[in-house]
């Protein structure tokens, strides 16, 4: 539904976005991750037609953003960063303005308006002007504006930024609720969000894509993936370490805690191999007393740091 082809954006000599290519299908929720200034917003602004790319292009639901910009924009609902909404308009006036500009009239306009208000629970604030609203409501008004035309593509730039945990939950629920028959791109730097709503994540750093895969695939890149953390209380740290190091596929062991003769130790595998059964077998063979045993799934934050820090 979205094909991004070799997108480049230069600001002077600075390559804000440097040859990005990816695709998003219907039903996918793509998380766009990256440190501040990595080029997330710049990419989104090019896709939504706010400014043209320096080179490369993208096709949105069949419409090229350069050759057929207006039709491409008709496919997209866009929530810009910080939810900019005219502060002196009422919520009702604003949403109806958006519906009119989007080309809806009469009963269809009314239907679209009411649907957006209902999904975003804005009934109570309709007559209020936007500058009297809390940040959460403002964000919801801007979200309502994005989904109002029921577009096949949603592009959301930090949709939960600055919201409290309840509001974040609400926004994620709304996104998940309409993910099925849309194609959604959202940027964030909250990693838990990726797990909560995204089916796939792209990490960009310095304008380049450095990782692209489902949250689980990305997690496998973590050095902690399949690592075993366990505690033992009748053996010394050195003895345990050397025993585990002698197992196949073990890359390293770390003592995390040593207290009153009890130790917490982490065994790291080489190359993401499964080592838990071998470690468990070793404990039983040596008759060590084991009180805690857990296998790591890998950590997104660690992967994020590794791929964006170079």
């Amino acid at each position: 539904m979205i094909q991004v082809q070799h997108l480049v954006k230069l600001f002077g000599n600075f390559r804000a976005v440097d040859d990005i290519t990816f695709e998003v299908q219907k039903g996918e929720v793509l998380g766009f991750l990256g440190p501040n200034g990595a080029g997330k917003s710049t990419t989104m602004r090019m896709l939504t037609g706010f400014f043209p790319p320096s080179s490369g292009t993208a096709v949105i639901n069949g419409y090229d953003i350069l050759k057929d910009s207006l039709n491409a924009r008709r496919q997209i609902g866009y929530l810009p960063e910080n939810a900019p909404v005219y502060p002196d308009m009422t919520v009702e006036g604003y949403l109806k303005f958006i519906a009119e500009v989007r080309g809806f009239t009469g009963s269809e306009l009314k239907k679209k308006f009411e649907r957006a208000v209902e999904i975003c629970s804005l009934e109570k604030v309709l007559p209020q002007t936007v500058d009297t609203l809390s940040k959460g409501y403002k964000q919801r008004v801007c979200f309502a504006q994005a989904i109002l035309p029921d577009p096949p593509v949603l592009i959301l730039d930090e949709p939960t930024d600055g919201l409290d945990p309840n509001q974040k939950f609400e926004v994620r629920r709304m996104i998940s609720g309409m993910a099925e028959n849309k194609c959604i791109i959202l940027s964030t730097h909250i990693l838990e969000e990726v797990d909560a709503v995204c089916t796939r994540a792209i990490i960009i750093a310095n304008g380049k894509i450095v990782a692209n895969g489902s949250p689980n695939e990305l997690r496998k890149k973590s050095s902690l993936y399949e690592a075993v953390t366990l505690s033992l209380d009748n053996v010394g740290a050195e003895e345990a370490k050397s025993a585990f190091m002698s197992l196949a596929n073990v890359a390293n062991t770390e003592v995390l805690k040593e207290e009153n003769g009890a130790i917490v130790i982490r065994v790291l595998p080489s190359g993401g191999n499964v080592i838990a059964p071998a470690v468990a077998e070793e404990i039983r063979r040596r008759n060590w007393r084991n009180t805690q045993f857990s296998v790591e799934e890998g950590r997104l934050d660690e992967v994020f740091r590794n791929v964006t820090r170079q």
């Binding site: 602004r45 939504t48 037609g49 706010f50 207006l70 039709n71 924009r73 008709r74 997209i76 866009y78 810009p80 960063e81 910080n82 900019p84 909404v85 005219y86 502060p87 958006i98 500009v101 989007r102 080309g103 801007c142 504006q145």
Partner: peptide, 14 residues
């Protein structure tokens, strides 16, 4: 200043 221009010019408006 309020960045509403970003929304205005990404609507289907030339």
């Amino acid at each position: 200043r309020t960045r509403t221009i970003e929304l205005l010019l990404t609507l289907p408006v030339t």
